[in-house]
Amino acid sequence: MSDAPIETLPGIGPVTQGWLSEVGICTEGELRSIGAVEAYRRLKFMLPRRVNLNALYALEAALRGCHWLDLPQDVKTALQDQAKVIDEALRRGAAARCAIP
């Protein structure tokens, strides 16, 4: 597991690095250990209006060492499917907290 700071990965700028730090992901190894989808889930639940699909693409691309625009279409499609599941869980969670018993 790499102890390299998360911002050494390509495409991880200061804003994303700050967000990742807030959810406990500070090193490349920590991101690799949980994966892009789980990191995105944590960010989305923390900042639902600021974190979008491009963040998920950027996280996956950083782990692959490429620019997010260079991700293969099948990878983007799989990530879109995962993002939909996370977005739905976020919506259900908010509805459940606001429901009248």
Rank of each mutant, 00 (worst) to 15 (best):
G29V: 00
A94G: 02
S2M: 07
G35L: 03
R92Y: 06
A61K: 04
R64P: 01
R32I: 00
D70C: 06
Y40A: 09
D70N: 11
P72F: 04
A58V: 12
E22W: 09
T8S: 15
I6V: 13
W19C: 01
A99Y: 12
K84P: 00
A36L: 01
A58L: 11
L79Q: 08
I34D: 02
K84S: 10
D87E: 14
D70M: 10
D87I: 04
R97C: 09
P14R: 13
P48G: 00
Y57G: 04
C98T: 11
Y40V: 06
Q82N: 08
R97H: 07
A99W: 10
Q73L: 14
T27W: 02
A83C: 08
D81K: 11
T77N: 10
V15K: 13
I25V: 15
A95W: 06
C98V: 05
L69I: 10
V51S: 03
P48D: 02
A89G: 15
I100G: 06
H67I: 05
K84E: 10
S21H: 12
L53T: 08
G93E: 08
A55H: 15
L59R: 01
G93P: 04
W68N: 05
M1V: 08
R50D: 11
A83L: 03
A36H: 01
A99P: 00
I12F: 02
D87N: 15
L47T: 03
Q17P: 01
Q17K: 15
G65C: 15
I6K: 06
I34K: 11
A62S: 15
A4V: 05
T27I: 08
T77R: 14
P72V: 02
L90N: 12
L53W: 09
E7K: 14
G24L: 12
V37K: 14
W68Q: 09
P72L: 05
G18L: 08
S21K: 11
Q73T: 11
K44M: 10
G11E: 09
R42T: 07
P5G: 09
A4S: 12
V75L: 03
Y57A: 01
L90G: 07
L31C: 00
Q17A: 15
I34V: 15
C98S: 14
M46I: 05
M1R: 13
V85G: 01
D3A: 10
R64T: 02
D74Q: 12
V23W: 06
H67P: 06
I12H: 01
I34Q: 06
E22G: 14
Y40R: 07
E22S: 15
P101I: 07
L53Y: 10
K76W: 04
G93I: 02
P14D: 14
G11P: 06
C26S: 12
D87W: 04
A55E: 05
P101F: 03
G18C: 07
G93L: 04
I12T: 00
V23F: 08
V85F: 05
P10G: 09
V37E: 14
I100H: 13
G93A: 10
K44E: 05
R92E: 12
L63A: 06
L90D: 07
L71G: 07
A55K: 13
L90A: 09
G13C: 09
I86A: 02
E88K: 13
A83W: 03
W68S: 07
V85P: 00
G24D: 03
A58D: 14
E30W: 00
R49I: 07
L31Q: 00
P10S: 13
V15H: 10
R92I: 06
P101E: 09
A96F: 13
